[in-house]
Simulated assay, not measured.
Amino acid sequence: MRLEVEITGKTFRSAAGEQHDVISGACFALDAGEVGVLVGPSGCGKSTMLRIIAGLDHDYQGCVSRPTGARIGFVFQEPRLLPWRSVEDNVRIAAPAADEAKLSALFEILELKAHRNHFPGELSLGLARRVALARAFAIEPELLILDEPLASLDVALAARLRDEIAILMEGRSMIALLVTHDLDDAVRLGDRVLLLSSRPARVLADLPIRTPRSARGEAEIAAIRADIMRRINGSSTDQAAS
Rank of each mutant, 00 (worst) to 15 (best):
M1F: 02
R2W: 10
E6D: 13
I7V: 05
K10R: 09
R13W: 08
R13F: 12
S14P: 10
A16C: 09
G17C: 11
E18C: 13
I23Y: 05
G25A: 02
L30V: 07
E34T: 10
V37N: 07
L38S: 12
V39G: 09
C44M: 13
K46S: 05
S47G: 05
I53W: 01
G62Y: 05
S65W: 04
A70G: 05
G73F: 02
V75G: 06
F76R: 09
F76V: 10
Q77M: 10
P79M: 14
P79N: 15
R80A: 05
L82G: 12
W84P: 11
P96K: 14
A97Q: 13
A101V: 14
S104I: 11
L106C: 15
L110P: 11
R116T: 15
P120R: 07
L125E: 07
L125H: 06
A128P: 04
A134G: 04
A134E: 04
F137P: 14
F137Q: 08
I139H: 06
L144Y: 02
I145K: 01
L146P: 10
L146Q: 03
L146G: 07
P149V: 08
P149M: 10
P149W: 14
L153C: 06
L161I: 10
L161K: 01
R162T: 12
D163Q: 08
D163Y: 04
G171S: 12
L177R: 02
D184F: 03
D185I: 02
A186H: 05
V187A: 13
D191P: 11
V193T: 08
V193S: 11
R202K: 00
V203W: 08
L204T: 03
L204N: 07
L204C: 10
A205N: 13
D206K: 00
P208I: 01
R210E: 15
P212A: 10
A219M: 15
R225E: 11
I228C: 11
R230K: 03
R230T: 09
R231M: 11
S235V: 00
S236V: 09
T237S: 04
D238T: 10
Q239L: 01
